[in-house]
Amino acid sequence: MLAGVLALIGLLDRLLVPSVRWVLRRRLNRAIDQLNARLMLKIPPFKLARRKVLIDSLLFDPDVLKGIDDEAVRLGEPHDVVQARAKRYAREIVPAFSAYTYFGFAMKLAKAVSTFLYRVRLGAINEEALRSIPKDASVVFVINHRSNMDYVLVSHMVSTSSALSYAVGEWARVWLLQNFIRAMGGYFVRRDSSSNPLYRKVLARYVQMATAAGVAQAVFPEGGLSRDGALQAPKLGLLNYIVSGFDLKGARDIVFVPVGLNYDRVLEDRILLSAAERAGAPAGSGRKKSSRFAFRPAVFVR
Rank of each mutant, 00 (worst) to 15 (best):
D69K: 07
M157F: 13
A279Q: 11
P95H: 00
I125T: 10
L130K: 04
S132K: 02
Y187P: 06
L267P: 08
N29P: 08
I181T: 07
S138Y: 02
V168K: 07
P44L: 01
F97R: 04
R270L: 10
K235P: 12
V202Y: 00
L122D: 12
Q217W: 14
D228E: 07
P297R: 03
S165E: 09
V257I: 14
M157Q: 10
H79A: 09
Q83L: 10
K108A: 02
D80K: 12
A281V: 12
M40N: 12
L198G: 00
V94T: 10
L12N: 14
V120M: 03
N179V: 15
V257Q: 08
Y102D: 03
A283W: 14
R121M: 15
I254W: 02
P197M: 01
S114V: 13
I254E: 03
A275N: 11
R50Q: 01
A212K: 02
V255L: 07
V113M: 03
I32R: 00
K201Y: 04
I55D: 00
F46L: 06
V301Q: 04
Y89L: 03
L261H: 05
Y151L: 11
E268I: 10
D253P: 14
S57F: 05
V257C: 12
R252K: 09
I93V: 11
N36I: 06
Q178A: 11
D63M: 06
A124W: 15
V94Y: 00
G4T: 13
L225I: 09
K235R: 12
P197A: 01
V158G: 03
V202K: 00
S57H: 12
Q34K: 03
G224W: 13
R121F: 15
K66D: 11
A7K: 05
E92Q: 09
E277I: 13
S98V: 01
G104Q: 04
V20N: 05
R26F: 15
V255Y: 08
L153V: 11
L6A: 09
A210H: 06
V140Q: 02
V120L: 03
A283G: 08
G214N: 04
R287S: 07
F103H: 05
S195L: 07
A218R: 04
V5S: 10
S147W: 11
F300N: 04
G284C: 00
M209H: 02
G186E: 03
P44T: 02
A72K: 00
L39M: 10
V299W: 04
D192V: 11
D13K: 11
